[in-house]
Each structure stands twice: as structure tokens, then as C-alpha cells.
Amino acid sequence: MRRTGNWLAHTVLILGALLFVLPIWLAFCAATLDPAAIDRGELSLIPRLGHLGSFWGVLAHGGPGVPPVWRMLVVSFGMALAIAVGKIVISILSAFAVVFFRFPLRRAAFWAIFVTLMLPVEVRIIPTYAVMGDLHMIDTFPGLAVPLIASATATLLFRQTFAAIPDELVEAARMDGAGPLRFLKDILIPVSAANLAALFVILFVYGWNQYLWPLVVATSPSLDTIVIGIVKMIGIDTSTEWNKVMATAVIALIPPVVVVVSMQRWFVRGLTEGEK
């Protein structure tokens, strides 16, 4: 009985994994094919290992109308990192204020943060663009990241984490003579390291996948993110070199995967070691 259950579970898991891996494998294979072959719809599940050069080609030289892929990777990485770090810094500070300090309009402040959950970038894109214009940040790197940094989600998450910290721990730190900033640095951040790592991964991937805002705010090719680049490579009038598009798409996958895999070790350990 138990054995059959195990087999069943494994079959489902393997099928699920295949289902998710298949499109990526297909993209990988397509990257090694002739552009013409893809246009004819002759997709193959067997890569032509002799033609892996297309990866190197896009990485170093880019494609029609876009800068080299390595440049776009740098822009994307910078943007995702700035968004993730920025969001974490701001939301730790705001959650710290909301949870541990009694100040006038504390509730109002919290609800104001909460309401922004209902106003994602897509909804406020025109006013945000106007504000960025007034700040002369259109078509600049800060312009890419800053409007995406304000974050209610992360603040709410940290608020929950901080609220779960026992009062006695806070009081023990007070008796030990730790001031607010010291408490934040020495106790609060290390204690919530697990949540911090998990949140970083989620926010990095969120930043990496941004499309609409970079499309609107940045026009110069030097600020093209990898996501924008892929779309630009799919020509509307000209014929599309699909093998290059696929190669770029596969390369674009790698950094977020690396971040997830390397941080996973951290936050899994953090979660299992975490003790309240």
C-alpha cells in the first residue's frame, strides 16, 4: 500500500517536472536550429550540438536592433538587485517603525502603506511617469528601479515577522542597553534572516521579470533590459531570427535560477534553524 502510494507520488512528480522542463528544453533546442527551419515550423526535440555558437553569438554581439546580451544582462541584474535591496531596506525600516514605536497616526501610516497594495505600477503608470519626468529620471537607471521600490507586500511580511518576536526578547535587549538601531542591527535582522532571504529571492525574480515599466521609462538601447531585448528581437516587419530569440531567452533564465538555487540553501537553513 505504502509502496504504491510512493510510486504514484513519484509518477505525478516526474510528469510535473517534465511538463515544466519541456518548454525550456524546446527553447534550448530551437536556439541551435536554422532560423529558416523554425520559420517552417520544423521544431526538433534534439539539439544540434554543433550549433551552440548561437548562444555565444547573442551574448557577445546581440541581435538585430539590440545591444549584446551581456549588456542587457548587466542592466537587468542591476535593476533587479536595486529593486530587491531597495524594497527590503525600505520595508524593514517601515515595518520596524510600525511594530516597535508608538507614534501619532501609526495606524493611519500602516493603512496608507496597505492601500498601495491595490495600486501596482500598471495602475499608476501615467502619474508615476509624470513624477519621474519632474524628477528628470526618465531614461536613466534610477528611473528604472526607484518607482518599483515602494512596496507594501514586503512591509506587511516584515510586520508579521517582527510582530511574532516575543516581547521578552525586546525587553532583554533593552535591559542589555541596546538602543533602537542597535536592536535592529544586532537582533531583529539576524533573527529574521530566513524571511529576509526568502523575500530577497522573490523580489529579485519580480524585478528581473519587469516589462511594462522599463518599456515605458527607458528608450535608449543602453538601458534595455533582457526582457525588453527579447521582445525587441521579435521583429514585426523583418523576419525574426528565432534561434537568437530562443538563445537569449535561455540565457535570460540563468541568473534568476542561480539566485534562487544559491539562496535556497540559505533560507531553507534559516527556516529549519529558526526558533521563536
Binding site: 516575543p166 521578552e168 525587553e171 532583554a172 537582533i187 533573527v191 529558526g274 526558533e275
Partner: peptide
């Protein structure tokens, strides 16, 4: 303190 309040990290 009653529940020790040690710094877990």
C-alpha cells in the same frame, strides 16, 4: 525572564 529571552542567533 520567564521564557529565558535568549537571543536565538
Amino acid at each position: 525572564f520567564q521564557n529565558y529571552a535568549l537571543y536565538p542567533h
